[in-house]
Write a protein that binds this DNA or RNA. Structure first.
Length: 421
RNA sequence: GGAGAGGUGCCGGAGUGGCUGAACGGGGCGGCCUGCUAAGCCGUUGUAGGGAGUAAUCCCUACCCAGGGUUCGAAUCCCUGCCUCUCCGCCA
């Protein structure tokens, strides 16, 4: 969330951000309430100052065995007035807060302004795959090779739930291990194995709540949420902490399944593995000093790109326009892999810089040096990568005219086979 | 799941209704002193909000896990929540 003082001092900047992101937070309501709030504070604090003075007198009088009844009666009225004002203040602050937490982060100056049609392809990597036979879509390949149990798992858990079998299951596990190994051994990330459910506060910290509650799986009995991404548990690892400046930057990587209700997305991309309620993902999360966050953002994106490069999958990097940017992000690159069978670019990674937006919500700070005031860190995260669409690209781009799938070289040691047949 | 204990400043640890933003010890920082062995002495050491001033700064308010309540007045009493620890039970 944004700092209240910042909003007060830069209302036009905030207004533009709300507009550019296509949001409709009530900025004017907040500004009016803020004026009211400060009026109340002025009054209640002077009343309290008086109360503090008189209360000492009462103690003196009692010690001197004087009758304090009259003064106490007077103070009772003051006390009542303070309570009244306190209530008004609480009410105003709660209303302000409810608006404040719904104001989106401000896009960085380098982000293209406009709706998603203004997304910018900033670079492209790899050869577009070509075959002299008619490539099949992944769901047909998976069906023929017995890699995915579309029908049984739907019967068991509902539509858009998918389970893997045989070499399909092995491919899933191979990809997770390959990605975690790359991030932790070569790219300097510390591996985390977090819980797959979190409390409400953690979902709030990273910005999923309150806006996206209907997209989350919720366990009412314990008021817990299934994680929609490892970003939630891993970023919240340092919630309510003041980190030592020397610890920064902190790089984490984690595998989790991701649970998303995808409310409102029914009928879109329903075929195969493109959009499912539970999918595997390896995530990277960074906690950095503010002045380095944009440099770290580029590096994070490069780290995700390396996964695709090593897998030999062609992709492009898209800088999201303001209208496509998530609520919490200041800037975001999407990585889109090309899948030959579907003839589509599929989003497999979002690499975002949240600046201090999440850090303020989750209260994650650092002390730049000994004795200095704590400042908010900048948080970033990026998928490295989401598995199902990576699997789509592998199955489709590596298919042969014999109906088999060649295993990408880097995965062979994890798969134990060179060809899926 | 049952029973109990507890959450105080950077850390340890006092404090059970007014004089406590908080004793004492440690650490950090600043200074002094010193040839006697990683010593001694003195001082200092939180955050947030509101207001005044060009500013250094000053005034007020709040904060002893969080949120409510009782009271003229709460770190101290009551309620709720969160977290930690111990014992018992259950369990992969």
């Amino acid at each position: 969330m944004l700092d209240l003082k910042f909003i007060r001092e830069n209302p036009e900047l905030v207004r533009k951000a709300i507009q550019d992101k296509g949001d409709k937070a009530d900025l004017d309501g907040l500004l009016a309430l803020d004026v009211k709030r400060r009026e109340i504070i002025g009054e209640v604090e002077s009343a309290r100052a008086r109360q503090n003075r008189v209360t000492l007198q009462i103690a003196e009088m009692k010690k001197a065995k004087q009758d304090a009844a009259a003064v106490i009666a007077e103070m009772r009225a003051v006390s009542d007035r303070i309570k009244e004002l306190d209530e008004q203040l609480r009410d105003a602050e709660e209303k302000i807060y409810q608006i404040q937490i719904r104001i989106p982060n401000i896009p960085h100056a380098s982000v293209p302004v406009g709706d998603p049609s203004h997304n910018q392809v900033v670079r492209q990597w790899g050869e577009m795959p070509k075959q002299d036979f008619k490539p099949l879509p992944h769901y047909e390949i998976a069906e023929k090779l017995g890699l995915v149990d579309f029908n049984r798992t739907s019967r068991m858990s509902g539509a858009s739930f998918v389970g893997y079998r045989g070499l399909g299951a092995r491919l899933e596990r191979a990809l997770i291990n390959f990605m975690l190994d790359l991030h932790s051994e070569k790219q300097g990330y510390t591996e985390i194995a977090p819980p797959f459910v979190t409390k409400r506060e953690s979902m709030f910290g990273t910005g999923q709540l309150p806006k996206l509650e209907e997209d989350m799986y919720h366990i009412p009995l314990d008021d817990l949420f299934l994680v929609p991404t490892a970003e939630v548990p891993v970023t919240n690892l340092h919630r309510e902490e003041v980190l030592d400046g020397e610890e920064l930057p902190i790089f984490y990587t984690a595998y989790t399944p991701c649970f998303r209700r995808e409310a409102g997305a029914y009928g879109k991309d329903t075929r195969g593995l493109v959009r499912i309620h539970q999918f595997d993902k390896v995530e990277m999360v960074k906690f950095v000093k503010p002045e380095t966050s944009y440099e770290e953002h580029e590096k994070l994106t490069a780290n995700a790109e390396e996964v695709l490069q090593l897998l030999g999958l062609p992709y492009r990097v898209v800088s999201l326009a303001t209208g496509d940017l998530s609520f919490s992000a200041a800037k975001c690159y999407d990585l889109e892999v090309y899948a030959m069978g579907m003839e589509k670019w599929l989003e497999v990674s979002s690499c975002s810089n949240f600046e201090d937006f999440q850090a303020r919500r989750a209260n994650i700070r650092f002390r730049p040096f000994k004795g200095a005031k704590p400042e908010y860190v900048h948080t970033l995260n990026g998928s490295g990568l989401a598995l199902p669409r990576t699997v789509i690209a592998i199955l489709e781009n590596y298919q042969t005219d014999e109906g088999t799938v060649t295993v990408p070289a880097v995965l062979r040691k994890y798969m134990g086979v060179d060809v899926i047949r």
